[in-house]
């Protein structure tokens, strides 16, 4: 990512100058920042990459029209992917599985861990809905054979089935499985697998760029006092603390 490296290079130059902890005022800093040339197209690509990866299909479409930035993937595939993700988030796991299989039957056939997690989520939903008998049957028929193939699946299966042993599941050691966050975890795993099958990176670039920014600021803190960005959502430069 060229933008990132430009910033890093600037930081490195400053670092080289600093013999002791140097103070850089907001004016000096802003002047330096203004010297950094960033292509508008690169910024647009970054935004488009975020919208596509996160599945904001309408926003991506609008952004494409407004900025002329072409997405690197057919936007129609985003709709399908989002439908799968949404189905998992709503607890319709079986529906999600069928949709993934329609999209590309190889995904679940070649990804045993993901397949297991989806089946596990199905079991969790059955337990959540109080369908004890069906849950037990499902665990035996569908999940037990996977547990035989893989030790860690077996452990996860045992943990999930133990949900049935508690009266008050919201207050038991494995209660987190029933939490909405478990659905989100499974949904994002499916999302990532579909993206990979479409030869697309599974994470957007923007968050990792922000992580690099924080890392770079921390590195620089050792050497200099300079205007920090503390609030990433506004990116305001704050006066250096002396």
């Amino acid at each position: 990512m060229s933008l990132f490296w430009i910033v890093i290079r600037q930081l490195a130059e400053i670092e080289a100058m600093a013999t002791s902890k140097k103070v850089i005022t907001k004016e000096e800093w802003e002047k330096k920042l203004n010297d950094v040339k960033i292509m508008k197209e690169d910024m647009n690509k970054l935004v488009m990459n975020f919208l596509v990866t996160e599945g904001y299909v309408d926003a991506a479409e609008k952004f494409r029209m407004e900025s002329g930035t072409e997405p690197d993937i057919d936007l129609a595939t985003i709709t399908d992917r989002m439908a799968v993700k949404k189905a998992v988030q709503c607890g319709n796991v079986e529906d999600a599985i069928e949709k993934v299989n329609d999209l590309n039957p190889e995904i679940l056939d070649t990804n045993p861990q993901l397949f297991f997690h989806l089946q596990q989520q199905r079991l969790i939903e059955l337990i959540r809905n109080g369908k004890v008998e069906e849950a037990l049957e499902f665990a035996q028929e569908e999940l037990a054979p996977r547990g035989e193939e893989n030790q860690s699946f077996l452990e996860e299966l045992e943990r999930t089935v133990s949900l049935l042993a508690f009266e008050d599941v919201s207050n038991c050691p494995v209660g987190e499985l029933l939490d909405i966050s478990q659905r989100l975890k499974t949904a994002s795993e499916v999302n990532a697998a579909i993206l990979t099958s479409q030869s697309h990176e599974k994470d957007p670039k923007l968050p990792s760029l922000l992580k690099m920014l924080i890392w770079a600021q921390n590195q620089l803190d050792e050497k200099a006092a300079y205007p920090h960005i503390n609030d990433l959502s506004t990116a305001t430069l704050e006066d250096p603390a002396i």
Partner: peptide, 13 residues
């Protein structure tokens, strides 16, 4: 056909 497909994908047994 769909039923067969959805049952066997990912499931060796």
């Amino acid at each position: 056909l769909r039923e067969v497909k959805n049952q066997i994908i990912g499931n060796r047994t």
